[in-house]
Design a protein around this nucleic acid. Structure first.
Lengths: 124, 124
DNA sequence: CTCGTAGTTTGACAGATCTCGTAGTACGGC
DNA sequence: GCCGTACTACGAGATCTGTCAAACTACGAG
């Protein structure tokens, strides 16, 4: 059933995603405009390039909803998804986004950070 | 005749808008995610701070829709609206946005520019 | 005062979006 | 082979959004 066209030469299990020159600004902004997705992107950014599976995020939504948001992010080109066993690993496409929309992701993350800074042992 | 009766402190006819510290990232991103509104913002940016009335934009929508989009932009804090006779002048809140979300507007405009630099009907 | 211009308000509607629950698929461990 | 985990697919419902048309207000020019 699954023809697995996502099986490129180097990365089996890589799910289809837009190429760098196919990234659309509207889609990226729309994907980032949702608080749940913005949170996911921020978490991925803090992971520093590490892969995170879909359930590694503590979000107040069900798995179905999470799947939906991850697909929106992937189809907008913000994240890369890669099957690995029963899990699906997610990474931010930092380089691709910086190449296509220089400074955009950095500015969004810098603006979003104050909203999500939970661990802050500095004060108190 | 034009007495500053409803002037808050400086500008009579200024429509209500969120303060700088009330700007919400989601709202800004959501406002920018629509192609019509992104176009308006880009046009205002190119105006270089000049005021533009609502009908100065050549957009394929009716006046009602335009009013709707301008309100979304103003309530998100992206533009400032100021009554002037029968017209309503619009300006980008460049400084406020840069103060609250440094680099965000610049990055968006830089990313949006290639989409709009060809307003002429080009063979696709 | 009358008229035209600029913009608003309202209601309506189609389509998108977010969310969920349930059922289903894919994979690894036993 | 069987079961649990991780995720997906399929509705379905509620809300939001973009769009329009028509009626309305506000202002300035004659």
């Amino acid at each position: 059933m699954t023809i697995d066209e996502d099986c490129h030469q180097d990365c089996p299990g890589l799910l289809p995603e837009p190429a760098v020159d196919e990234l659309r600004l509207e889609a990226v902004l729309h994907a980032l405009a949702d608080p749940t997705r913005l949170r996911i992107v921020a978490d991925l950014a803090w992971a520093g390039g590490d892969e995170l599976n879909c359930l590694a995020f503590e979000l107040p939504v069900t798995k179905s909803t999470l799947t939906h948001h991850f697909r929106v992010l992937r189809e907008a080109g913000l994240i890369r998804q890669h099957r690995r066993g029963t899990s699906k690993m997610n990474t931010l496409r930092v380089g691709d986004l910086a190449a296509r929309f220089p400074g955009l992701l950095d500015a969004v993350l810098a603006a979003a950070e104050p909203c999500f800074t939970t661990p802050k042992p500095a004060a108190h």
